[in-house]
């Protein structure tokens, strides 16, 4: 089995406890992801907090069409997944997959933490999960 590679380069930091890479605009506003190309001019690379609180959430109950590249190939082997927005206090509210939770367990404002997780047979991606021990 080959080693999984990140779904995109420079989306999170390469460190023991990875952080998503956002950008700080000249105005001080924090954005995610870090802008690319000409839009990156004057934007400072800004690794984001690993912890935040749940801002909103839902569950994807049908298999998205292309460009979705999640595991499985047909509507029959599709497994619904959770996603939401996580507020990183004072920084930015990030949209993310949510893992290690059930829909019924999710509540607005609950503490969440970043995790890098397997996504499909080729790639890892970022996700948030309920903060352990919180």
């Amino acid at each position: 089995m080959s080693v999984l590679t990140p779904i995109a380069e420079d989306l999170w930091t390469n460190e023991a406890e990875p952080r998503l890479i956002g950008g700080r605009l000249a105005s001080g506003t924090i954005v995610f992801p870090m802008p690319a190309g000409d839009a990156a001019e004057g934007v400072e690379r800004y690794p984001l907090s690993r912890k935040g609180t749940l801002w909103s959430f839902t569950r994807q109950d049908f298999r998205p069409k292309s460009p979705y590249e999640g595991p499985g190939e047909t509507p029959q082997d599709f497994v619904p997944y959770l996603l939401g927005y996580i507020e990183l206090s004072g920084e930015v509210i990030v949209e993310s997959l949510i893992v290690d939770a059930k829909l019924e367990e999710l509540k607005l404002g609950m503490p969440m933490e970043l995790a890098i997780v397997p996504f499909n047979s080729q790639h890892t991606t970022f996700a948030f999960r309920p903060e352990r021990g919180a």
Binding site: I7, S56, E69
Partner: peptide, 17 residues
């Protein structure tokens, strides 16, 4: 591209969220 690949770029999700 990763935004679509990971299944977060759906109008239905926005309205639900």
């Amino acid at each position: 591209e990763w935004y679509g690949q990971t299944g977060m770029m759906l109008t239905t999700q926005f309205f639900a969220l």
